[in-house]
Design a binder for these strands. Structure first.
Length: 508
RNA sequence: GGCGACGUAGCCAAGUGGAUAAGGCGGGGGUCUGCAAAACCCCUAUUCACCGGUUCGAAUCCGGUCGUCGCCUCCA
């Protein structure tokens, strides 16, 4: 298994320190809703974690929540609430988004505000070793104390200086020195420290938390490419200086950034699509397929067309999984090993998910082909979702088949496939009524009326397909009870109260 | 200005030295169907931004040109 390491700028054989892979991915600063860029990063690392587990590794996965920083303070002031209220609100929002995207919870979510003692310990350690210095209530990291500063970003201190903004603070020894501890202004949330009241700087929390929960050396540290400099560069400087042991991280993994149109999607540019907005339009699986269709290190451009294509691709996989086995599972079976092997080879090569998806689609075609020619597909159908669910984290819906004990003239006992909808009993009753009416028309060869019912239901998001078992209902969207009632009314079918209860009646 | 990435079919996207350039979406034709849908089959890049070079052989390596993007400042 090979992974691309940002530090060495090449693919390396993956060999973690022990049985348990220690993995840390930079989490959120909860001051606003998460956007698709966050979704990409966390989907990517979710898949990496899943694949490591699939390959038999134990994984300890830690992700920080930086619940105190300048942006949180500003935003809380704007909204007139406390920083902890704000952080709490958007941390919940973040968890809701992760759950909705089927991103598994990590093992530990340390929060900056509850890790202050560890943060202070690390800063004090750095000051003791003269890698850092206090100044006017703040504390700064002395970048010139680290000879290899810039090794992750592949840049020298001099080249950074060329265009670096020279910050005002004259209290810094060197313009590139960065804050470990920031003295607080009056009214700001603060914690006591040896250097005075203040709060942690941006980078130190990640060092403190990763050291505390995962030890001196991590196997994998991940994040977006925009974090390489300065965030991860500074983490290396702090952590290696503090522990005295190198490397801080064996494999640095960075995902490409989501673009929207011409530019990177980012909060400062204001051109972002939130996860909640995307989920309002597209299914979780479509979003995941969209992200995984490109290699994780490449940038992707968010587009409606792309998401729609992913939605259609997803439907293809769902349909394959929900197909019936023509042999009832007893016949000669399709050999799935070549596809499984293809999938694993792709994932072993720096998590090549586009190629792995290709293997899955090849398998999908093979399954359809096999089923069409009477081979058993049951085993193959188990392998496909095993890979799609366990590794790629897709959640294909399950087909339900209503079985009626007595065959009736109508087709109520027909298969249903729920793609994205919430069919309530009220809705199902009405749809079944329409399907029955259509079946009656078909038997009477009233094709025009039968086709109209199918067309009208399709407009409402329910697709009807005539299959050997009857009429298959595919729920793409959830219509309202009212629209269905209107349709029934139009077709001359209505609810009527009778002494026996409320029943459906065809009106003449 | 410095560092880095990328430019493959209508769109998205793998492939990074060798035998027919994955896969998805879209489009066209066919089989099936009352008609559809789904599924399957066939077609949809003689060619990988452009120009030169290395090589028996290059989309893949080297040099140059053009174009796009990211980082260097808060950011996943």
């Amino acid at each position: 298994m090979k992974v691309y390491n940002t530090l060495s700028a090449q693919k390396e054989e993956f060999s973690p320190q022990g049985d348990e892979v220690k993995m840390y991915v930079c989490g959120v600063t909860p001051y606003d809703n998460c956007h698709i860029g966050h979704a990409m990063s966390y989907i990517v690392f979710d898949v990496i974690r899943r694949y490591l587990q699939f390959r038999g590794y134990k994984v300890k996965y830690v992700q920080n929540i930086t619940d105190i920083d300048d942006k949180i303070i500003d935003r809380a002031n704007q909204l007139g609430i406390t920083t902890s209220e704000l952080a709490e609100r958007y941390t919940s929002s973040y968890f809701a988004d992760m759950d909705a995207l089927n991103i598994g919870r990590v093992d530990v979510y340390p929060r900056a505000t509850v890790e202050i003692p560890k943060i202070i310990e690390v800063i004090q350690g750095l000051i003791d070793k003269e890698y850092a210095y206090p100044a006017q209530g703040s504390a700064y990291f002395r970048v010139r104390s680290v000879p290899d500063y810039g090794k992750l970003a592949h840049r020298s201190l001099e080249s950074m200086m060329a265009r670096a903004r020279i910050e005002a603070g004259a209290e810094k020894e060197h313009p590139m020195d960065f804050a470990l501890w920031k003295a607080s202004k009056p009214g700001e949330p603060s914690w006591a420290s040896p250097w005075g009241q203040g709060r942690p700087g941006w980078h130190i929390e990640c060092s403190a938390m990763s050291l505390k929960y995962l030890g001196d050396t991590l196997d994998i540290h991940g994040g977006g490419q925009d974090l390489i400099f300065p965030h991860h560069e500074n983490e290396i400087a702090q952590s290696e200086s503090f522990t005295g042991s190198k490397p801080f991280v064996k494999y640095w993994l960075h995902n490409g950034l989501v673009q929207l149109g011409e530019d990177k999607m980012s909060k400062s540019l204001g051109n972002l699509i939130t996860i909640k907005e995307a989920l309002g339009k597209y299914s979780t699986d479509a979003i995941r397929i969209f992200v995984l269709s490109s290699h994780y290190r490449s940038p992707i451009t968010y587009s409606e067309e792309g998401l729609e294509a992913a939605e259609n691709a997803r439907e293809r996989l769902v349909r394959v999984i929900s197909r019936d086995d023509p042999t009832g599972g007893a016949g000669k079976a399709l050999d799935v090993e070549p596809y499984r092997k293809q999938f694993i080879e792709a994932m072993d090569d720096d998590f090549n998910t586009p190629q792995a998806l290709g293997a899955l689609f090849d398998l999908a075609r093979a399954i359809n082909e096999a089923a069409d020619s009477g081979l058993s597909i049951l085993k193959a159908q188990n392998v496909l979702p095993e890979l799609a669910r366990n590794v790629l984290g897709l959640k294909p819906p399950i087909q339900t088949i209503e079985v009626k004990p007595v065959a009736t003239e109508t087709s109520v006992g027909s298969p249903t496939l729920i793609l994205s909808a919430n069919p309530t009993p009220e809705l199902e009753e009405r749809v079944n009524r329409l399907v029955e009416e259509r079946s009656r028309c078909r038997q009477a060869k009233q094709w025009q009326r039968a086709d109209e019912i199918r067309a009208r239901l399709a407009e409402l998001g329910i697709v009807l397909e005539d299959v050997p078992q009857g009429t298959k209902k595919i729920w793409r969207r959830t219509p309202s009870v009212e629209t269905l009632d209107n349709l029934l009314e139009e077709l001359g079918i209505a609810l009527e109260d009778t002494p026996q209860g409320t029943v459906w009646k065809r009106k003449r």
